[in-house]
Amino acid sequence: MIEERRNPRLLLLGVGLAALVLSALPLPHVADLLRPDFLLLTVVWFALMMPRAGGLATAWAAGLALDAFRGVALGENALAFVVVAFIVHRFHLRMRMYPLRQQTLVVLLLLLAYQFLLFWIDGVTGHPVTAWVRWLPVVTGTLVWPLWTGLMGRLAIR
């Protein structure tokens, strides 16, 4: 299986920017609450499939970009992204072998961990948001993962 592949770094940059734009696209309020964390899904995908292009530093930079974009405490998303990317890196060989359903389940746990970290940091920095709607992106992100990984696989192969 010799296929031509895109330059992973260019792909990362392109998809990363697209995910950043998706994360800020104006949507009606309900849809805004349901919006999956596209940038995190991208980071997870790169840590899983192209671990050398999408390393921890990349995850950190992506998180920092999201912090700057959203105007939250600098380093909040960066920290959570690094933790998630670390877990994926650690187990990426195993995760690749999982059937899609099982992989999606792992992604659910990862998104849950990410949201919990944010929840915790928000509390520590004095902006607690205890509304249950904050956990909705975990569900939608999990539902989107099979589509996202399929799309990314297509994009990666020219």
């Binding site: 390393g55 405490a73 380093g75 909040e76 690094v82 933790v83 004095g126």
Partner: peptide, 17 residues
């Protein structure tokens, strides 16, 4: 590497806070 980046994030957060 993860530890270093996490420490960096925490430092940033503290400074920003």
């Amino acid at each position: 590497r993860a530890l270093v980046l996490i420490a960096l994030s925490v430092g940033l957060m503290v400074a920003d806070h």
